[in-house]
Design a protein around this nucleic acid. Structure first.
Lengths: 209, 209
DNA sequence: TTGCTATTCCAGTAATTTCTGGAATTTCAA
DNA sequence: TTGAAATTCCAGAAATTACTGGAATAGCAA
């Protein structure tokens, strides 16, 4: 396999972006190459295409495997291991989100929890703890949300994303539903504040925002 | 100001986490310190507390200012500049999301767009372009969504997040609404696939998932 | 303007991270 | 079990990034 100017441009950009995140350039480039490759590639071929040493590629692939972002497969008649990315891009997003939660968010949340539990040694500590609690609660809220929507099937998820902020119109609507609907919703999500609930009838403009 | 064990633990952890992202440890620690500090701090005090050189702190503060994550203020009777973080944590999230979009996502999207526009030089290019298009469309969808919900006021946003995946129940509901509601929703969001629309009546279990 | 204080810039140094080649290990077919 | 091929590990080299002290600049009160 040979790099075309097009694939090369993508690989270089992706490597740069990777290095702005935690990922190093090599790993980013390897991933980018596999992402646009039509077939699974063996490590020595990756090394040759990208001009890295064989062992560097091995390291990078191990890293990507630990993130569950590349799969290993054996092709008949070839003893070498071949690597490829996940085919379904939504699956990639789900895996990435899960791994980031597991590696970065969860440890942070538990550090925050521990610190919030401690007996404050001073007024400064007491203030710091309120700030840490704010941060903890916010991260937890966002993470619960992301775990939750991640379980949706892709079609629903896409519909939800496309709806964007207009979804609050539906929330308004929900608050106006007959009691049977509201009772269920509240039983399932007790913490949701539900300050004013209007009448059950509905006018067109009330669907706005 | 003196670091207590509690604030020190937080600052150290935050610094480590920062260095897993693009942010370097120093910058992460400065931000963490300001985040838990009850009052705005001048640069020399930050340097003393964290044990960094004065110029390093200056660099870090400049970086944080460029992210709009710290504010500068002058206190009466003191010529030094004092720095503090944003008080409203939701505001912090909004600013962070905006800056990440501006610095990392937008440039990536435009690279992807350019590459997708190019005339493919080979079959491999053609395949690569379909993959790049998938990536482009996915990132754009998620970014549009995030821009959009970012405009919501905080109470609505929190309600939305707490609802999590159960929001699809509302989507189902929407699809069952009398025509006046559906017509509006479709006019506002034409690309949203809306395959089956049921009758306008509603049974309790149809609110599930 | 002058003098004082605060801030930023810069070049050199230190620390960290990345990368390499070769040695050791593993895997698998015969 | 053996040997050939593939993979991983590791210690040192290279490259990158972070940090420092001091010099230059800017800001402000007198």
């Amino acid at each position: 396999m040979q790099l075309t100017p097009l694939t090369e441009a993508f690989i270089l950009h992706f490597g740069e972006m990777g290095s702005r995140w935690g990922i190093n350039r090599t790993v980013g480039q390897i991933y980018a190459l596999l992402y646009v490759a039509e077939r699974a590639l063996p490590a020595d071929e990756i090394a040759e295409i990208l001009g890295f040493s064989r062992s560097n590629v091995s390291l990078g692939l191990k890293e990507l495997q630990s993130w569950r972002l590349v799969r290993l497969q054996h092709l008949p008649g070839d003893r070498r291991e071949h690597f490829s990315t996940l085919g379904d891009i939504w699956q990639i997003v789900r895996v990435l989100a899960e791994e980031r939660r597991r590696r970065e968010i969860d440890p942070t949340l538990s550090v925050l929890r521990e610190l919030i539990m401690e007996t404050p040694g001073s007024e400064a500590d007491r203030y710091a703890q309120t700030r840490l609690r704010e941060m903890h609660d916010l991260i937890e809220l966002i993470m619960r949300w992301s775990e939750d929507v991640q379980k949706l099937d892709t079609a629903d998820l896409v519909q939800l994303l496309k709806l964007g902020g207009r979804v609050v119109a539906l929330l308004e609507l929900k608050n106006r539903l007959p009691l049977i609907g509201r009772a269920r919703a509240q039983r399932e999500a007790p913490p949701v504040a539900d300050p004013q609930s209007g009448p059950a009838d509905m006018h067109e403009q009330e669907l706005e925002t």
